[in-house]
């Protein structure tokens, strides 16, 4: 149990997917201008990442590993994740329209998100078992959400600040992201 908690903490804070591993930077910059969007995106990522983490783990363990086809991992994962997202989108639209209204528009954006892909590959590389893969996927996604929401909060405040014109928008966004990333470095060595 403690192992799993340690794993979760390290995935959320120490190896934060956005700020320590630098994956998924386009939604990080793209959907962080408004808190509302950031929250929607964070939830969508949690949702998709947990599902994708689990499914890809199953595909890898029971199909690819069994027939020694690890070299097909990347392409197989892309296919699986893309179909999965499509499927989830359709499912939500029909069955849980309220959730769809909140997440729906973000789902297609995550289809080809490198953070999702990255976590699935990390799960395999670290040779997690099923439970670990589940926890890690959730924790990475939570870390993604945490960083995104923090960042959106900062960016909303920046809107009120007087930023020199040449540094406005994405430029100041990148600087802020850099500082946030430095902050997360403080967690290094915690576990």
């Amino acid at each position: 149990m403690t192992d799993l908690i340690v794993l979760a903490i390290s995935c959320i804070l120490i190896n934060n997917i956005l700020l320590a591993q630098y994956l998924g930077n386009c939604p990080f910059l793209g959907t962080s201008k408004k808190m509302e969007t950031a929250v929607g995106m964070a939830m969508a990522v949690v949702f998709v990442l947990v599902l994708a983490g689990v499914i890809t783990w199953i595909v890898d363990t029971f199909i690819l590993k069994r027939w020694d086809l690890e070299y097909l991992r990347t392409i197989a994962f892309i296919l699986v994740i893309a179909s999965l997202v499509q499927f989830v989108e359709m499912f939500l639209k029909k069955s849980i329209p309220a959730l769809y209204a909140g997440l729906g528009i973000f789902l297609p954006l995550i289809t080809t998100n490198c953070a999702v892909m990255g976590v699935c590959l990390i799960n395999i590389k670290e040779e997690y078992n099923f439970i670990q893969a589940l926890v890690a996927s959730f924790a990475y996604a939570a870390g993604f959400g945490l960083a995104l929401i923090l960042f959106a909060g900062v960016r909303e405040r920046i809107l009120l600040a007087r930023v020199p014109r040449p540094l406005q928008d994405t430029s100041i966004g990148l600087i802020t992201a850099g500082i946030l990333s430095l902050v997360f470095f403080a967690f290094k060595g915690m576990v």
């Binding site: 595909v59 199909i63 097909l72 197989a76 296919l79 893309a82 179909s83 499927f87």
Partner: peptide, 14 residues
């Protein structure tokens, strides 16, 4: 074959 199969399953499910 495996890729075809995975693709086929995905397509079918979708």
């Amino acid at each position: 074959l495996v890729m075809l199969a995975i693709g086929g399953v995905c397509g079918l499910v979708l």
